[in-house]
Design a protein around this nucleic acid. Structure first.
Lengths: 365, 365
DNA sequence: AGATTGCCCGCAACCGATTGCGCTCTTCCC
DNA sequence: GGGAAGAGCGCAATCGGTTGCGGGCAATCT
């Protein structure tokens, strides 16, 4: 695959390569005549400077990498990543840094930087090990721009973009308490993951401050199926919690499915609160803690672009907020398991004050 | 940002750059001793060959671009693209071609290829103009691997990955007819877009074969809001269609929302059928025509990788199928507009044979 | 002992663009 | 008319890695 080169332009015009180069980038030491001749030819031949050659002389790739330490399937099954990508891609586009994408459960965080394939890197802080952080810091010291989304295992000099999860969680717990809930269950993310632990303790702290008793805590792996299984376990164990709190929306979706399969529903039988507020949540009316995911992405990319251009960058503070929708209400009079075989009463009751409703989430067919 | 170079290795070992190079890539003309010395040092210094320099000599970038001719916001608001990306990224990862991502409403399809930033390109066939197709063909003739997802304006020598939309549409219409529907409305995609026109005529052909009358056709722009507005228009105009067919799921979601806001619901008041079967569709129980979106992505990427490696590649046939869920049923006795102010009767009736249901999709709060 | 063979390795020329430095030619001035 | 200034352009090195070709050296053969 042979493209038009600077030499081609120079040959055709009878000038030196260097002259052609200077003409194209508007060097004042080239006469107007020559400059326009070169530019005209370049346009008509569809010349574009070879990215690799430029990268070599500029010692900069002009691209930024996004490393997602999960399989592509996992990543894009979760709308969270789509929204993150939306924020990243929008800024990447506007600042002119192509985004390189990698989704692998065993990522090599350093590879692209060491190959000088990218000048900067965005990745998830929470999935980095101690050693990863250390090596990325070393690369950052050499000039790489690294931004972490979410907190890593230990404090670091790398730029970390995060969002205060507590306000939204606090609001959610306040609302539950106000509605009369006093016993909840928590379906958290993977217990090894720092971010999941942080979020769990945020739920616990806020919940306890509002006198909510945590009857049970289950660790899931942030997938739909994990949520469904956790909900199944809660139902089978007849856990009398009147509200279920989740580490993310996807698991809450799974739980709603499980409820539906059990012939129960939210909020009549149990209130359900997710975390993230991804797009489908608005669609199905899930009450959840809204996280500004796009902004996390755009903030990370903006920070990286600023650093690469040696411009100052003031980071903006991001916070969560509770978005009450249709899966939260006052607790039922009876706990879910008390009405097996068809929650007739609560249904009648719900109908009395609820508008006619389309039938709900996915159901076995 | 200065990384370890081949010269560094050579200097430290007192050999020539070329020797170090050959040692690393296992050239048999280098002695075992030297080879292992070089390799050991390379590993301990964290050496990785500079991607730009390799690209220059190999005349290949070792990367593939994905150009999405829409804003990042549009792209990632539609789960379709997330699933497409899932298929692309999974294969890209496994074949070792990093994926470059671009989302811009005014894309430059050729730029990355001309800059030699990528060896191959994936984009959406339906959004290419005549001129775009021509220029891409020219680049393909020069050795670029180009794959189009969806049919372009005219037949082309470029590789086109597509999926037969008719079977699923046919199945959907058959089902509607069988359930007793005879009058439908179609909310199609943008009427300028070839793919939307194809899909519309597929709906019409299949519908008419099953004696469904198309009372009204509205062109939307494939967004949630377009679907909501189209549904609003249908309701206001008291269109007596008993089923609504959509150009994609996202518009169907919007329509469900509009129904909900009007105090109506599907399928009691009107059956709704989407197209794509994106992830949230299963969640909210939308009946829809399933398209193997991931496979479209993986097929495109596989084809590109094969072409770049000069390997043969047999393309696989992809087809759609109808997935009946909860938004299709027999038509109501009365048309939607006849029961304004609360469709009490149809509701009772629905309850009689429907399992208890969670309240449905997003509703105004 | 001298010639031959083969193993290892270095020299140098690329790939395509950028840039410091110096050369040439015109023009202006004394 | 001769020298200086300055405009306009070319030479060559450089970025880091690859590769054709040739050269040095030791072992082997006659």
């Amino acid at each position: 695959m042979r493209m038009v080169t600077l030499q081609d332009l120079a040959d055709r015009l009878g000038v030196a390569r260097s002259t052609a180069s200077r003409a194209l980038r508007g060097d004042p030491q080239i006469s107007e005549t020559t400059r326009s001749r070169v530019r005209r030819l370049a346009r008509s031949l569809g010349y574009h400077p070879n990215a690799a050659a430029r990268a070599l002389t500029h010692r900069a790739a002009g691209a930024v990498g996004l490393v997602l330490p999960r399989t592509a399937t996992f990543v894009f099954a979760n709308p969270y990543f789509a929204e993150l990508l939306e924020g990243l891609a929008a800024v990447a586009e506007s600042v002119g840094y192509p985004l390189l994408l990698s989704a692998s459960p065993t990522p090599d965080y350093e590879l692209w930087l060491r190959e000088a394939r990218v000048d900067g890197l965005v990745t998830l802080g929470s999935s980095l090990g101690e050693a990863d952080v250390e090596r990325l810091e070393a690369l950052a010291a050499l000039g790489a721009a690294v931004a972490l989304i979410g907190e890593p295992v230990r404090p670091t000099s790398l730029r970390v973009v995060l969002c205060d999860e507590r306000p939204g969680i606090e609001q959610a717990c306040a609302r539950l308490a106000h509605d009369g809930h006093d016993a909840v269950a928590l379906v958290a993310g993977p217990s090894q993951a720092p971010y999941a632990r942080h979020r769990s303790s945020a739920w616990r702290d806020a919940g306890e401050a509002h006198r909510l008793e945590f009857l049970r805590t289950i660790a899931g792996d942030d997938t739909f199926d994990a949520g469904r299984e956790a909900a199944g376990a809660l139902l089978r164990s007849r856990c009398p919690a009147s509200a279920w709190l989740f580490g993310n929306d996807l698991m809450a979706f799974g739980a709603l499915q499980a409820l539906d399969e059990a012939g129960l529903r939210s909020p009549d039988d149990v209130s359900v609160i997710g975390f993230d507020d991804v797009m489908p949540s608005a669609l199905i009316g899930l009450s959840t803690v809204h996280q500004p995911i796009r902004e996390l992405g755009s903030e990370a990319m903006t920070a990286i672009a600023a650093e690469l251009r040696r411009q100052p960058h003031a980071s903006t503070a991001l916070v969560t907020r509770f978005v009450p929708r249709r899966t939260t209400a006052a607790p039922p009079r009876r706990t879910p398991h008390a009405s097996e075989g068809g929650p007739i009463d609560s249904e009648r009751e719900a109908q009395a004050h609820a508008p006619p409703s389309r039938s709900g989430a996915a159901r076995r067919r």
